[in-house]
Design a protein around this nucleic acid. Structure first.
Lengths: 228, 228
DNA sequence: TCCTTTTTGTAATATATTTTCAAACAAGTA
DNA sequence: TACTTGTTTGAAAATATATTACAAAAAGGA
């Protein structure tokens, strides 16, 4: 179920919203000031953040701005009535929607649902929409399936290509052999997991430069990763 | 099986709910007024409390409030239809969910299940949901499995990493050697408990600074802990 | 179709790293 | 001091990964 972070200093309101959201089946967490709210938002992956504009320690706009430097978690800004200027700057700082206090809980729920739906659609499109993937001076153009290191075109077989693509679409995520196996060879493949090692080697031979560290790092006991 | 306390003065309703819950395999107890209800809740450890808002001697809100001073037993508040004001203050006093009377028994069962699940998840998983874990200037990024002390990256083996993660996800909890063994080495591992000591030493060598106190403290006769 | 080339997967070996054990040592406690 | 508990160490055992050669399968071309 979706996880929602509530950053709001009025305890009664925070508690009320939290309970209503839990009642709807969301997983919630409350933070009572901007600083801890931002920290929680960064440490954790929430689906939506409800962010009050007026907060102690760090105001809502500032929280949104700093969060946006790192992440794109959707934000619904809660503003005092008619504070148009705030609205504008709120959007400007990265809010995805806003709701004016005092609000009917049903309106908030509707906005959350709408936002989750919107994000879902964007995510679906985005992933398949990206035309190219990059890691350092390595690029993959998906449509043409051309792989380059700098200017030099690298010829990869189907398996090699898919393995590299998977790694490059998950930069900084350590992928276990069996994960790679299901992603590249298919969930029902019955090959030995040693093929992953072998293909990693093929890739290294083709993309790395002699003497330099490999672009693909081994994490012993766990898997492989391309670290930025 | 989970134990549920029903605090409800309408005998018929209380009886009905009790029978249904027993039928579902829960262990139940009924109290017919706020005073004895609170007493029972304090004396005993229930998994969930069903609490009516309108009660003789001590109303539901008051029961919730006083219980919360001592305990965090999850509460489902049963409120009359559309009593929004009651909701707000009820939640404010510590309810975890509410159900509006009259309700379908199936909805109540679903809410109880959801609540039990949520509590479970909050206990176990919240920590493992987090993307990163921090202790003083030590951080672990889980996806990339990068461990840092300040800016310096620390290389850990699989076992070392998992041991540190376990300790850091349980800051201020003293973990016995055999607990660490089951958590890190697996429930069926058959290694000597001395390996824990050995790995604690490896970790200390890698994360501590010479001269400073160790981040990992020994609790003689009990286990190890990272104290904040 | 038949032959050639390329790709894929397996298995064996070599190499590197980690894990474990057990014994000696140190420290804390009664 | 005697006893218990924790620490440190080095070496052996266990595992994981890298590398290679090769056979089977698939793809391509005449």
């Amino acid at each position: 179920m979706s996880r929602i972070l509530i950053i709001e200093d009025e305890k009664n309101l925070a508690r009320f919203v939290e309970l209503e959201l839990k009642h709807e089946g969301y997983d919630t967490q409350v933070e009572l000031n901007g600083r801890t709210g931002l920290q929680a938002a960064l440490d954790d992956n929430f689906d939506v953040i409800l962010l009050d504009l007026m907060l102690p320690e760090l105001n809502g706009m500032e929280v949104a701005r700093r969060l946006r430097e790192k992440k794109n978690t959707p934000i619904i800004m809660m503003t005092a009535r008619d504070s148009v200027i705030d609205r504008v700057s709120g959007f400007d700082h990265g809010a995805d929607d806003y709701i004016v206090k005092p609000f009917a809980i049903e309106e908030l729920l509707a906005r959350i649902r709408a936002l989750l739906r919107r994000i879902q659609i964007e995510n679906d499109q985005q992933k398949s929409n990206k035309k190219s993937v990059t890691f350092k001076d390595l690029t993959i153009e998906k449509e043409s399936r051309i792989v380059r290191r700098g200017d030099e075109v690298i010829n990869l077989t189907k398996r090699e290509y898919e393995l590299l693509l998977t790694l490059m679409e998950n930069v900084d995520v350590v992928l276990a052999r069996d994960v790679l196996l299901t992603k590249v060879w298919g969930y029902d493949s019955e090959v030995e997991t040693n093929v992953v090692d072998v293909y990693i080697r093929y890739l290294r031979n083709k993309i790395d430069r002699p003497g330099e560290n490999s672009y693909i790092q081994t994490v012993r006991g766990t898997g492989y990763v391309m670290r930025s």
